[in-house]
Amino acid sequence: MRKKNILIIGLLAALLVVLVSSFRAGAESESPAEADAARVDSSACVYPKEYMQTHHMQVLEDWKNTAAHEGPDAVHETADGRKFQKNLSTCLACHGSNRYFCFSCHAYANVTPNCWNCHISPLDTP
């Protein structure tokens, strides 16, 4: 009986804590973000060419879903320690040099990703 009581009391306390803390205003946990510098390293691709040919959509989807919420920490770190800003412009810094890089393949595969609804398409650049 005593053990049961203690359990119930503990559960009540935990429930209260969770409830109250979940209703706290929107701030996400604050951690000191010291790295300030420009970290758009576009000298070599995030993954090997062969992997990117088949999986670039997953990489971009992951960046798309996580970049905004990670904010200043939206950095993709590869296995060998290179760092990339999670941003479509990181890709376009290299691949933008060929204006048809995305489009020739997508036209061939008959896919129309909605990236260019907002991001400015290399085709629209002067």
């Binding site: 009581n5 009391i9 306390a13 935990a14 429930l15 109250v20």
Partner: peptide
Amino acid sequence: DRREFIRKAGIGMLAGMGAASGILTGG
């Protein structure tokens, strides 16, 4: 038993509130 339970549960509530307010001091 019931009286004891109510007493203990009350203490639990208070403890819970204390803990919660500890979390909230930042805001």
